[in-house]
Simulated assay, not measured.
Amino acid sequence: MLRLKHALAAVPLLLLTACATTRAPVRQPGDAVTLGLQEQRERSLADTDHWTLQGRLSVSDGKDSGSGSLTWRQDGERYEFTVRAPVTGRSFRLVGGPDGADLEGLEGGTRHGADAESLMAQAVGWQIPMAELKRWVLGLRADAGPADIAFGADRLPSRLVQDGWTVDYKQWDAMRQPAMPSRVFAEKAPFKVRLSIEDWQLGR
């Protein structure tokens, strides 16, 4: 297995958190109003399966950590997930869809796997819940079973707990309609995934 510190330059998680402007830690249980707004939001974004986000990604398994710039293109069921290391300039690209996933750019050539999540874990050592994350980054509940959701004072999701993961929405871009997450931290001990989103493009 190619470990994190060999795949990308190891960079402390503070790289993302030091410059992030976080929301006040207000977490209110969902009520009729906030849950109704969330359901409305989920209906409006239900068919949003063509989008691109750009930003930074940081991951940790409790021992090793890695970080880099991220471009994630979602085209229906197909995706392209490109990470570029900040210091070494090395990068890898994960592409695929229902027929499996390919990981390019690592020593030893392209790796193929049945799905993105298991391929990333085996080849790079990164535990990223790819199937669920593509909904969580939009501020939506995934199709992974029951979810507990709490809201901030702005009535936008503040924390989502689903499939053993805790997803904290640290910041939203409220200038967009609908508002879109700009800081998303997901954790399932000992694993951590942190996204700092600089730009959203919705649609083809």
Rank of each mutant, 00 (worst) to 15 (best):
M1L: 13
L2T: 14
L2A: 09
R3E: 05
A9H: 13
A18V: 12
A18T: 13
A18E: 14
C19T: 14
T22Y: 12
R23H: 08
A24V: 13
A24S: 12
Q28D: 06
G30H: 07
T34A: 11
G36W: 05
G36A: 14
L37S: 02
Q38C: 03
E39V: 02
E39W: 02
R41N: 00
E42G: 08
E42R: 08
E42V: 09
R43V: 12
R43A: 15
S44E: 13
L45F: 04
A46T: 09
D47L: 05
D47H: 06
T48F: 03
T48M: 07
W51N: 02
W51H: 05
L53S: 09
S58I: 05
S58W: 15
S58A: 15
V59C: 12
V59Y: 08
S60C: 12
G62F: 12
K63C: 07
W72E: 02
W72R: 01
Q74T: 10
D75N: 14
E80H: 07
E80D: 12
F81G: 02
R84E: 05
A85M: 00
A85R: 03
R90D: 11
S91D: 08
F92D: 04
G96P: 03
P98M: 07
A101E: 01
A101Y: 04
A101M: 02
D102H: 13
L103K: 07
E104L: 15
E107Q: 12
G109P: 09
T110I: 14
R111N: 01
G113R: 07
A116Y: 05
L119A: 10
L119Y: 10
M120Q: 14
A121N: 09
V124F: 06
I128T: 09
I128W: 13
I128C: 08
I128Q: 06
I128K: 08
M130P: 00
E132T: 06
L133H: 01
K134R: 15
L138M: 04
G139S: 02
R141K: 10
R141T: 09
A144V: 03
G145M: 06
G145I: 11
G145S: 05
I149A: 07
F151W: 05
F151P: 00
G152C: 04
A153G: 01
D154N: 03
R155I: 00
P157D: 02
S158T: 01
R159E: 08
L160Y: 01
W165D: 03
Y169H: 03
W172M: 01
A174N: 03
Q177T: 15
M180S: 07
M180A: 08
S182W: 00
A186M: 10
A186S: 11
E187I: 12
E187Y: 08
E187W: 07
A189T: 15
A189I: 11
A189Y: 09
P190C: 09
F191C: 07
V193T: 13
L195Y: 08
S196F: 13
I197P: 02
D199M: 13
W200K: 05
W200G: 04
W200D: 01
W200M: 03
